[in-house]
Simulated assay, not measured.
Amino acid sequence: MKEYLSLIKKVLKNGEFREDRTKVGTLSLFGLQSRYDLTKGFPLLTTKKIYFKAIVHELLWFLKGDTNIEYLVKNNVNIWNEWPYEIFKKSSDYNDLSIEEFKEKIINDHNFALKYGELGPVYGKQWRNFNGIDQIENLICNLKNDPNSRRHIVSAWDPAKINKMALPPCHTLFQLFVTNEGELDLLLYQRSGDIFLGVPFNIASYSLLNILIARECKLKPRYFIHTIGDGHIYTNHLEQVNLQIKRKPYKLPTINIKSEDNIFSLKAEDIILENYQSHPVIKGKVAV
């Protein structure tokens, strides 16, 4: 994952300090692009340990059109908890519950989860029901029937619904390209990228999405191309990224899918990460 370490170094060297919505402050650089060759291995970060099952569960959650954190939390995926919790804190039911207590209520009280675990019309809604359009089904159909099209695009950005979302989409649009040799490339445009916490997840998630779509369409996954608008390192992550760039990357792992099910029926246990070696976890606080 030398490409990712180069990304960190570029922002550290050329970024500017900026105030931001979270009040944490960032070192930001606008207009970044990296290319990850999926034929050389699966681009899961090795300079710190990444919880791969969280990436799998989140992607399957998107593909099912779900927008409530209940499924994620019940599968020990807590990457979305802060946003509905902040909304819950403003409600009359708050009563000083900690975020851990909030999580337990999401797990144990389905009605509570329905009310307070909802994120609004975020990725899953837009992917599977964008004003009545199932973008993922259409994408797969078009890749199979018109591979040379330049319209293999899925958008998560619906301006009419932004104010109804707990967090407007950071990874806003992706496009696919089929080569004459039957290889599949996926390009993501991400308006905002948290280089330390979020971007490693985004790289792995969209690389996995490319693999799943290629499998569905009987193509060969090739490149994941990652374009970021505002790529930033939060000021409270500077120590962590400086530690990361001192670590030597290990060989990349591989993905094995042990199921014949289609992309919409896959389960997390069907997607196996093999030969993953990494440096230890580096923790950092999410800016909300």
Rank of each mutant, 00 (worst) to 15 (best):
S98D: 02
W80T: 03
F102Q: 10
L184F: 08
K161Y: 03
G117Y: 04
A166R: 08
G182A: 11
D93C: 07
E100I: 04
D194F: 11
Y71D: 13
N68L: 07
N111M: 05
E104H: 06
R151I: 00
N142P: 00
V178H: 03
S98Y: 04
L119A: 14
E118K: 11
I99C: 09
D66K: 15
S155T: 15
E118M: 05
R191G: 10
H171P: 00
R128G: 03
I133V: 15
L139S: 08
Y94S: 04
V77Y: 09
W127V: 03
S155I: 07
D158Y: 12
N142D: 13
T172Y: 01
N131A: 00
L176M: 15
V178D: 04
H152Q: 08
P147M: 13
Y85Q: 12
P121W: 08
H152T: 02
F177I: 02
G117H: 02
I136M: 14
D93I: 02
D185W: 11
D146C: 07
L186M: 14
T179Y: 06
I79V: 15
E104G: 01
K89P: 05
K74Y: 04
I106A: 10
V154N: 07
F88S: 06
R150A: 01
D66V: 03
S192E: 10
I106M: 13
L184M: 09
V73W: 13
Y71P: 01
L184V: 03
C170D: 02
K125S: 12
G182S: 12
P168L: 05
I136F: 09
I69V: 13
Y189S: 15
S92M: 07
Y123H: 14
N95Y: 14
D109I: 01
W157P: 00
I153Q: 04
N81Q: 11
G124H: 04
L114I: 12
N129H: 12
V122K: 03
L114N: 14
L114W: 04
N145S: 15
Q190D: 12
N138G: 01
V122F: 11
K115C: 06
F112W: 11
R150H: 10
L139N: 09
P84I: 07
N131H: 11
A156P: 02
N131V: 00
I162E: 08
P84E: 13
F102P: 06
I99D: 09
N129K: 07
R151E: 07
L119K: 12
T179W: 05
N68F: 08
Y189W: 15
Y71M: 06
K125A: 09
D93R: 11
K125P: 00
I107E: 14
L114Q: 15
I107M: 12
P168H: 05
Y85V: 02
G65C: 02
I162T: 08
H110T: 07
D185L: 10
F174K: 05
E137V: 06
Y116N: 10
G117N: 03
P159F: 01
P159D: 03
L167P: 02
I79A: 13
L173S: 00
E101R: 06
V178I: 05
K103L: 09
V77D: 15
D109C: 04
D185G: 06
I133E: 14
Q175G: 01
I106W: 13
D109A: 04
L72P: 03
D146M: 06
W80A: 07
E137Q: 13
Y71F: 15
C141P: 00
Y85N: 10
D96L: 10
L186W: 12
N145Y: 11
F174E: 08
S149H: 05
L167W: 08
M165V: 01
D96S: 14
N138Q: 10
R191W: 12
F177E: 10
